[in-house]
Simulated assay, not measured.
Amino acid sequence: MAVIDYGMGNLHSVERALRHEAPPGMHVLLTDDLSVIGEADRLVFPGQGAAADAMEALRRLGIDRMLPELAATRPFFGMCLGQQILLDWTAENGGVDLLGLIPGRVERFPERAIDNEGRRLKIPHMGWNVVRRVREHPLWQGLPREAWFYFVHSYRVLPAQGDQIVGETDYGDTFASAIADGPMFAMQCHPEKSSADGLRLLNNFLRWDGGW
């Protein structure tokens, strides 16, 4: 399997977590080599930073042209910015066109978001929060219906199709923290930083055949 390296984010921590959970005989490669990416039996697409920089890097490397087919034909896991980039458009950086693999857009959290007790919430949303399962999915196997994950982000995805939302999180309002379509699964959080629940999720992905 391959972790797609386009220079955005803490890729080595993702690679280490996957290697820790990989079954015997599975090789985890961090790579920007198009031939290796194209031949991998499963892919992880992480990311941190600005959407405009990420899209520029993907286009420069030619990875953007490969992702639509790859994400439709093998187990594919988008993480953090790697979730957002799957949608059509983001308001970040003045508006950026994204990959368009999941219908919808990406918007910043409201500046004056408040919690249930009327307290103003900080942006970015940073720290531990609950991902609440709203649809069954093979990657949820062995996880509680409300599992704790680690987040760092100022923007959140707004999918156009509600049936693609498999997990939700509350921060001011409720946002789609996990989405899925066919062999594609994506989360806004950082599973590699999310202790036991995050590692269980990665373990499930590494054994998933892409069926849903």
Rank of each mutant, 00 (worst) to 15 (best):
M184H: 09
P159Y: 00
G127T: 08
R119L: 14
G162Y: 08
H137G: 02
R105C: 10
R156K: 14
A113Q: 12
Q161M: 14
D32T: 12
D173V: 13
G94C: 10
F185Y: 07
Q83M: 12
E117K: 14
I165W: 11
Y155I: 06
Q141P: 15
D173Q: 14
D197H: 12
L58N: 01
N129A: 14
Y150F: 13
R120W: 13
F77M: 05
D163E: 13
S13H: 11
A2M: 03
V3G: 05
I63Y: 03
S13K: 11
G25E: 08
H190C: 06
E192F: 05
W148V: 15
L99V: 07
D64T: 12
E56L: 11
D32Y: 11
Y155Q: 07
P110I: 11
C189R: 09
Y6I: 06
A176R: 04
E111P: 10
L67T: 01
G167V: 02
Y171E: 10
D41T: 14
H153V: 02
I102D: 07
P46W: 03
I37A: 02
G118P: 04
P23S: 13
V14H: 04
Y6Q: 05
R16L: 09
R42T: 08
I37G: 01
N203C: 15
V96K: 00
G182L: 01
Y155H: 10
Y6M: 11
D97F: 05
P103C: 08
G100P: 13
L87T: 04
G104F: 00
E107H: 14
A178N: 04
Q83F: 06
A147Y: 00
A2R: 05
R60V: 13
L18E: 03
T31N: 06
V106M: 04
L43G: 01
F149Y: 05
L11S: 10
A17E: 09
P159I: 03
D5H: 03
M66F: 09
D64K: 01
E15G: 07
L81K: 10
F151I: 06
P159H: 04
W208L: 02
P75I: 01
E146R: 03
L206F: 06
D64I: 09
F151K: 02
L34I: 07
H137F: 04
Y6H: 09
A54D: 03
L61G: 04
K122D: 09
P191M: 12
A71R: 07
W208F: 08
I85Q: 07
E56G: 15
M55G: 02
